[in-house]
Computed example of a mutant assay.
Amino acid sequence: MTTALPQPVTEYLAAHETRDADRALPHFTPDATVADDGHTYHGPAEIRAWLEGAASEYTYTSTLIATERIDGEHYVATHHLEGDFPGGRVDLHFRFTLDDGLISRLVIEP
Score class of each variant (00 low, 15 high):
residue 1 M to Y: 11
residue 2 T to R: 13
residue 2 T to I: 09
residue 5 L to G: 07
residue 6 P to V: 08
residue 9 V to I: 13
residue 10 T to M: 07
residue 11 E to T: 14
residue 11 E to D: 15
residue 13 L to W: 00
residue 15 A to W: 00
residue 17 E to A: 12
residue 17 E to S: 12
residue 18 T to Y: 00
residue 19 R to S: 04
residue 20 D to M: 05
residue 22 D to M: 05
residue 23 R to Q: 14
residue 25 L to N: 04
residue 25 L to T: 10
residue 26 P to S: 06
residue 26 P to C: 09
residue 26 P to Y: 02
residue 27 H to L: 00
residue 28 F to P: 06
residue 29 T to R: 08
residue 30 P to E: 13
residue 31 D to Y: 07
residue 34 V to R: 00
residue 34 V to C: 07
residue 35 A to P: 00
residue 36 D to Y: 12
residue 36 D to G: 01
residue 36 D to I: 02
residue 37 D to N: 13
residue 39 H to M: 11
residue 39 H to F: 09
residue 39 H to I: 11
residue 40 T to S: 13
residue 41 Y to A: 06
residue 43 G to E: 07
residue 43 G to S: 10
residue 44 P to C: 00
residue 44 P to G: 10
residue 45 A to L: 12
residue 45 A to P: 04
residue 49 A to Y: 03
residue 49 A to I: 09
residue 51 L to Q: 08
residue 52 E to C: 02
residue 52 E to R: 10
residue 52 E to H: 01
residue 53 G to A: 06
residue 53 G to C: 07
residue 54 A to K: 11
residue 55 A to M: 03
residue 56 S to C: 05
residue 57 E to S: 07
residue 58 Y to V: 03
residue 58 Y to P: 04
residue 58 Y to L: 02
residue 61 T to G: 15
residue 62 S to H: 05
residue 63 T to E: 15
residue 66 A to Q: 14
residue 67 T to W: 09
residue 68 E to L: 14
residue 71 D to L: 07
residue 71 D to H: 10
residue 74 H to C: 08
residue 76 V to G: 04
residue 76 V to H: 11
residue 78 T to A: 15
residue 78 T to K: 13
residue 80 H to W: 07
residue 84 D to P: 08
residue 84 D to R: 12
residue 84 D to W: 09
residue 85 F to S: 04
residue 85 F to Q: 03
residue 88 G to T: 10
residue 88 G to P: 12
residue 89 R to I: 13
residue 89 R to L: 11
residue 89 R to Q: 15
residue 90 V to E: 13
residue 95 R to D: 14
residue 99 D to Y: 08
residue 99 D to C: 10
residue 100 D to Q: 15
residue 101 G to I: 02
residue 102 L to Y: 03
residue 102 L to R: 15
residue 104 S to Y: 01
residue 106 L to Q: 03
residue 106 L to R: 01
residue 108 I to R: 03
residue 110 P to T: 09
